[in-house]
Nucleic acid binder design. Structure first.
Lengths: 116, 116
DNA sequence: GACAACATGTCAGTCATTGATATATCGTCG
DNA sequence: CGACGATATATCAATGACTGACATGTTGTC
């Protein structure tokens, strides 16, 4: 057994990948595009970051390759489609809860101008 | 000049440090305790992680050592107190905005139980 | 004076991200 | 058909960040 290590807490990149997969199974490349859209360009993954992160998430048992089953042909080109597993959903939920905590416990930084 | 590199996007640890400093200047150790409280024990920093992160944030110009000025004595024991700079505040706000985006664009995973 | 909590720091090892490089397919424009 | 851009995946070396252990010293208190 090479590594039983869990990768929680997750990194920013892996959180975004899991978040992307809540919307349904996707290719690595589709995940990349989805993250760029959803973060409005704030996060752009290089393919190195992307595929290595996917491999780690798969090894950790948070995501898995989705069956091509059922859907005969269509426009299913090629490539691996990943789906979120229950473990991954739970790990994601932990990170989202942490985000909510951080947001609610952080003093109102946002104001750009101070009242007289 | 060894490194002019900006450290944005921030890591999870540095975001928590900056978030802690929105509540006022603090020692490294105080930051550690504050983060543990605010994240309800989810994030516990070792001193290695903590002080190295502080050094990086200082080098990057996001935080600075606070003047001991004005406040004469009191219970100011010793140690460096850090404060958030405008640059740091801006960097933090970017990260918080990203969190809000991630939360709002992520499908409702949270429900622990489904209605009837 | 021993001991816990406060307070800061370094180091080696490990892990993650980056950017380059490589490969291959698909659609389409000329 | 040939070239080209978008889709799609993967690896590698270098860099950067985190972990856990170790080291050091103070302050308060029993």
């Amino acid at each position: 057994m090479p590594s039983n290590k869990s990768i929680t807490p997750l990194t920013a990149v892996t959180v975004q990948i899991l978040a992307s997969l809540t919307r349904g199974p996707r290719h690595g490349y589709g995940i990349k595009l989805d993250i760029e859209e959803r973060t409005e360009g704030s996060i752009v993954l290089g393919s190195g970051t992307l595929y290595q992160a996917l491999q780690r998430l798969e090894r950790a048992g948070l995501i898995a390759e989705a069956e091509t089953a059922g859907t005969d042909g269509g426009d299913a080109r090629r490539g691996r489609r990943y789906e979120l597993l229950a473990t991954g959903r739970a790990a994601l939920e932990r990170e989202l809860a942490l985000m909510r905590l951080t947001l609610s416990s952080t003093e109102a930084v946002p104001q750009p101008a101070e009242p007289g």
